[in-house]
Design a binder for these strands. Structure first.
Lengths: 212, 212
DNA sequence: CAGTATTGTGACTCATAAGTCATAATTAAA
DNA sequence: TTTAATTATGACTTATGAGTCACAATACTG
């Protein structure tokens, strides 16, 4: 946990530091992140960083939880009770892209946390991601199973894992398309994203098998 | 690429080194792997390691490609043209677990490379890994669309992405179960793995929506 | 078996970066 | 305005580990 000094800081300064932390941990493997760099980029001395945080690990976890919380705040605004599960997923994607456009680094850090994190703290980090992000999804699935929208003959945990995995891959794929075309995602034709999403939803809803 | 000296080595020695490399890169993040340790464990001096390889990166890529090739050799034996898609997936899982039991470290390295790899060479590595296994998968999907087993109204690329993501996550989840129970994966009751797989196939086949 | 070539070695260099700390600057309190 | 408390700083310490290299051991050759 960051020291209290961090929270005594003027808002602006703290945000600057947070942003830089997120950026650096999003773009480099843990061991290659240099606190000195972060300090400089935040217009703060390295010594100060150690006034605000216990150590590097502390900075890393702070960056991750801040990001995750920010994302959750967005996602939790969706009132899943007022819509079908598939609309919810659709809406979730929308919010997700918005989040991504607003703060690319935050997105990258989340992606890394969920997918490739290989820091010395991988297991701890995975636990945080699971409890914060996957649990919400699971809750909604259970809710929808009760309401009869989602099949009840499969473990909600499995469904959650299924969706989480597939949807991350979709996000990745869309980013890859953008990258290959050499355009930023927000310049990717809306149809491209929408059609990918719709196909994804079709598969999610009814599976890949041919229907008679 | 390793230097020629590596390949002049007696088979036994080279294998010992390879095995140690795989083990270390499988268990620790790239930056925490210490060449000195590897050298010692292989009964070789650190200096020698640098006779055989250009540098650390070289050792890493050698470990990875060796492992991948070994796995592909196994996977390519499956004659996927003669079976339905769902059998293929099932068979794929089987091979995967077998590989895991036979050569744990190799398995772990593959998993890490594909799932959490966060080395400075992540993107290069991803290219090597993904293209191969995804390509095979995509081919099979197209084949099965033609044969009428898989719906034809969705882009095969999307289906591939969907399956790839979901199934990786499933593997991850099974590993997590094992970990939570504190047992190694090969001691996990067969039913646990099988039921997870079956549920996965159900979702894949018919989707998550309630069927009337 | 002398001489040449190849391979093995580990002490050493060198760069890097985490974390500390004495001191300076700033702010708050009296 | 003086004093006390808090916060900022960056030079310094220290640990680490990649990569080198001069020399030793071993193998090859004629």
């Amino acid at each position: 946990m960051p020291k209290s000094t961090l929270f005594n800081l003027p808002e602006k300064k703290r945000k600057r530091i947070t942003k830089t932390l997120v950026k650096h941990f999003a773009h480099k493997p843990y061991s290659e992140v240099d606190i000195e760099d972060i300090a400089q980029e935040s217009n703060v001395s390295k010594g100060s960083m150690y006034q605000y945080f216990e150590n590097k690990r502390d900075m890393y976890f702070y960056a991750i939880t801040e990001t995750l919380n920010k994302y959750l705040k967005v996602i939790e605004k969706i009132d899943f009770k007022s819509m079908s599960f598939f609309d919810y997923i659709k809406r979730g994607f929308e919010f997700y892209w918005k989040f991504l456009l607003n703060d690319r680094d935050a997105y990258l850090l989340m992606e890394k946390t969920a997918l490739y994190n290989d820091s010395p703290y991988r297991k701890e980090v995975e636990k945080i991601y699971h409890s914060k992000s996957q649990e919400i999804l699971k809750k909604i699935i259970i809710e929808n199973q009760k309401a009869g929208f989602i099949r009840g003959d499969v473990n909600p945990e499995t469904i959650m894992i299924f969706i989480d995995g597939a949807s991350w891959n979709l996000k990745k794929a869309i980013l890859k398309i953008a990258q290959e075309k050499g355009v930023p995602i927000h310049k990717l034709p809306k149809e491209v994203i929408e059609s990918a999403q719709n196909e994804f939803l079709k598969l999610l809803e009814n599976g890949i098998a041919t229907k008679k």
